[in-house]
Design a protein around this nucleic acid. Structure first.
Lengths: 176, 176
DNA sequence: ACGGGCATGTAACTGGTTACATGATTCA
DNA sequence: TGAATCATGTAACCAGTTACATGCCCGT
């Protein structure tokens, strides 16, 4: 439900047709989230099926805009904090949890491996961040790219911290 | 590709049949990742189709085990660090990025809203964590649950930190 | 004339997910 | 007897994703 909401959000800025949405989506995400054009059209079909968008056709060119329902739905999305109703389907978490089933030693080995790999990744990203020029005020795409890099760094730091917590909890009780 | 790998990992511990895998998966994830039984069977079908598992049947009871290919695949999974080849399809990130398209003011409003909601969530989780009894040594499910709670806390902290970074980058250049 | 970008679409597949149907066993 | 748990499965849908086909228009 990510591309879906992304397109809705872009349509709230102003009506556009499919191809424009593709490029808008990609510049908005700083070029790190490429979108197959086909996906835009299939997603638009589904949005129309659900009554969230409608379109006007001119010379074989369909200009999409939000419906009232679409605006409502989007409003809810802006408000909502990404839910953890069903908690995070996080791959790193799953990996460690499953490793524990193989015994604490296996888990600690996986943790060590993941930590060193993540650390390398983190350093590389920090290098990327400091080498990238501070984005110019008007350059939305560059700002977006900078924010994405920030997110990657912060996320990696969090993952590392979590691995440390896991190791602490596991080695404190080396039974099992 | 999460349930898929989870089942593979469980089968590496030892052969099991479908229903056992469901319960094993749920206890391994501390009860926070419920699995519809049906999904286990469809996933097993797909794993068999891909030649990663095989089964022996006894009295209408199918006992699954890894194939050589399955072991290989799993080995790669243990090694791999959750890839960011196509970077994170993170909902919070998308929300902020799309908000920027509506102008810096809209973005700052979304950031503020998200931050306060996340902060409330975080405090609640910290309360959960301190109120939960420190898991007993042998209780795998409780340990798993504790680790999941840790992950939620750490993740929320990271999201908050990222929101601060976004705000800094956006208010520093209030143009656009 | 041709290649590249603009523009629209379809067909097919993937994994995740739910709802539902069936039957055996176990135990109160 | 009857509910709960064990056990296996099917049908259907969802969103994401890719590959492919079509054609227009513009600049070289």
């Amino acid at each position: 439900m990510a591309v879906r909401e992304g397109l809705l959000a872009l349509l709230e800025v102003g009506p556009r047709h499919g191809y424009q949405l593709k490029t808008a989506f990609e510049t908005a995400t700083g070029g790190v989230w490429p979108l197959n054009v086909g996906q835009v059209y299939t997603t638009l079909d589904r949005l129309e099926r659900d009554g969230l968008v409608e379109f006007a056709e001119h010379d074989g060119q369909k200009t999409y805009r939000l419906t009232v329902d679409g605006v409502t739905e989007l409003g809810a999305w802006w408000q909502a904090v990404p839910a953890e109703d069903p908690p995070p389907r996080d791959e790193l978490m799953l990996k460690v949890l499953m490793a524990i089933e193989h015994g604490a030693d296996h888990a600690l080995a996986v943790i060590t491996r993941q930590r060193s790999a993540l650390l390398a990744l983190l350093q590389e990203r920090r290098r990327d961040r400091s080498s990238a020029p501070s984005p110019a005020a008007g350059d939305g795409e560059a700002i977006a790219a900078a924010l994405v890099t920030d997110a990657l760094v912060v996320r990696a730091e969090a993952d590392l911290r979590w691995l440390d917590l896991c190791e602490a909890r596991l080695s404190r009780r080396k039974t099992r």
